[in-house]
Design a protein around this nucleic acid. Structure first.
Length: 343
DNA sequence: AAACCCCGCAACCGCCTCAGC
DNA sequence: GGCTGAGGCGGTTGCGGGGTT
């Protein structure tokens, strides 16, 4: 937050818009300004933002008005804390898209890129940082908050092939591939319902129908209507395939590991984990990754964050090579079928 | 109660892209 | 093709409030 500057705001060095008008306000928006902008937008709709600023009687630059509208005043904005399902989706999308906050926000109705970016940089980043610090002790205590989240613990135990005998140092950086690797392991969680501190535990079975969070009771949180549920689609126009996370937090998610390693006929030389369970866990992850590899639409960093090593053709791909639309198409159909990214 | 610390988040900054001229 | 203005985006800043000492 910035201190409001009633007048003669110090314009940014290269901000021509600001330089052109020394009386432009900066800093926090007053309720009166919010009201002016809101009224103008409701009556006139969005046009040229500098015109909006001028015609609404706001001594703000157009960019500032745009930001205020998009991040705060927009009527369809969803306020409040992120739901676990939203968090899952953010992590998933970030693992695919990186710091493309606007792209991520576009797939989370009612959330802004700024909000998601802040959420990532504060909450999720911190969580991953914690897991990295707890990484030093192989026998992670299950009493710690992080340990209660088995997915985080799993990520913290992730072993880089060839370094199976030592823990991997995690350097926290929002753009680091290892962070993405960590969340990838989260995202490909083959046992999504095994949250120890969540009441619900319904293993997905073939359908992947799990009780994610039985505590969701916010009636007012729906985007698309007045249902007693959290509505990702519905009237909100987010997509044709509505997904309702009802009062019992139910969400339909097909199992990611629907294709077996054998089916894919993929050789893996990677050794994951240091226990029987971990081997199962990481083999599942590996199978998912390699399965994705077979779909050429999915091109991404290796889960281990040291490149893209696949046994068949040793392709090395980078984020920039992704065909985003194809990618999201694939994501919507495979991982989150309730999301229609075509819209 | 006061001082200090930490963290969330609103808002700004700087850069990029694109359209119009 | 170059210039300019507007919109959009990701990164960064720093205020304010809550928690801790």
């Amino acid at each position: 937050m910035r201190k409001p500057e009633p007048s003669s705001a110090a314009a940014g060095k290269n901000n021509k818009e600001n330089n052109s008008n020394s009386k432009l306000r900066k800093g926090l928006w007053s309720p009166e300004e919010d009201d002016k902008l809101m009224r103008y937008m409701i009556n006139n709709g969005q046009g040229c933002w500098s015109d909006v600023a001028r015609n609404a009687g706001l001594q703000r630059c157009g960019k500032s008005c745009r930001l205020r509208w998009i991040n705060y005043l927009r009527p369809d904005l969803k306020r409040g804390a992120f739901l676990p399902q939203e968090e899952e989706l953010i992590i998933h999308l970030h693992s695919l898209l990186g710091n493309r906050w606007s792209q991520i926000a576009a797939r989370l109705p009612g959330r802004t890129d700024n909000e998601i970016k802040n959420f990532w940089n504060s909450t999720i980043k911190k969580r991953l940082k914690n897991l990295s610090s707890s990484n030093g002790s192989p026998n992670t205590s299950d009493s710690s908050p992080e340990a209660k989240d088995h997915r985080v613990v799993a990520a913290s135990r992730f072993i880089i092939p060839g370094q199976e005998h030592g823990m991997v140092p995690i350097y926290m950086d929002s753009t680091s591939s290892f962070m993405q690797s960590a969340v990838l392991s989260h995202m490909f969680d083959p046992f999504p319902a095994l949250d120890i501190d969540q009441g619900g535990l319904t293993l997905p079975g073939a359908g992947g129908y799990y009780n994610a969070n039985p505590c969701i009771t916010q009636r007012e949180i729906g985007v698309g209507g007045g249902d007693d549920c959290y509505n990702f689609g519905g009237n909100g126009g987010f997509g044709s395939g509505d997904v309702d996370i009802g009062v019992e937090g139910e969400i339909f998610v097909p199992p990611l590991e629907s294709v077996s390693i054998e089916d894919q006929n993929i050789k893996t030389e990677t050794t994951y984990g240091d226990s029987k369970n971990n081997n199962i866990y990481y083999n599942n992850i590996n199978s998912i990754l390699t399965c994705n590899k077979t779909n050429k639409n999915i091109k991404g960093e290796s889960i281990i964050g040291v490149g893209n090593y696949f046994d068949d053709d040793q392709e090395e791909l980078t984020m920039g090579d992704w065909d985003l639309e194809d990618l999201m198409k694939d994501v919507s159909s495979s991982s989150f079928p309730f999301l229609d990214y075509q819209s």
